[in-house]
């Protein structure tokens, strides 16, 4: 390993997370996942492998679902980061959150934040996705509890509720 005489110094940047800009100082090897959870206290974003093999750590980067375990935090300056903590408006749940809770889309709840963020990006792009589009959109998020069916139903229900209230 090439740690030898390397100077070990933190980087110091501004991060825009859920619309708020925060200063953060962290070791450059830290991924966005680590900085969110360990430096910003946003533990809603989960991790299941840290290798890009499960989707549990998905967050939105400039509106796109990405895996925070493979995004260098140091590369996030100036980009908009959204996590599950930013979904609800005050005490009011996002329609996706409400539908997930109502329709059994969250069992153990561990893959839930990653799927919620992924589904949010989908509905922002396609307000009325078909079942097949939903299946494709969340196919990068492994869930071991639900068999996915109630997740599709919740996304469909959220889409319906969002259209009604629009």
């Amino acid at each position: 390993m090439s740690q030898g005489v390397m100077v070990r110094r933190n980087v110091h940047i501004d991060l825009r997370v859920n619309g708020e800009t925060q200063e953060a100082s962290f070791a450059p090897y830290k991924t966005l996942l680590e900085v969110l959870r360990e430096d910003l206290g946003l533990t809603g974003t989960k991790h299941g492998c840290e290798l890009g093999e499960c989707g549990a750590c998905a967050v939105l980067v400039d509106g796109e679902p990405q895996l925070s375990c493979l995004v260098l935090a140091v590369e996030c300056e100036g980009r908009s980061i959204e996590t599950v903590e930013g979904m609800a408006k005050g005490a009011e749940l996002h329609p996706l959150q409400a539908a997930f809770a109502d329709l059994g889309a969250a069992q153990c709840g561990y893959c839930t934040p990653g799927i919620l963020m992924t589904a949010k990006a989908l509905l922002e792009r396609e307000p009325s996705p078909t079942r097949d589009r939903i299946r494709e959109a969340i196919s990068g998020n492994l869930c071991r509890c639900t068999g996915y069916q109630q997740i599709y139903e919740a996304v469909e229900e959220a889409a319906r509720r969002m259209k009604e209230s629009a």
């Binding site: 809603g44 979904m87 749940l93 959150q97 997930f100 969250a106 709840g109």
Partner: peptide
């Protein structure tokens, strides 16, 4: 479910 809110809000 009674713990649904906590699960969907992280």
């Amino acid at each position: 479910r009674v713990d649904g809110w906590a699960k969907v809000t992280g």
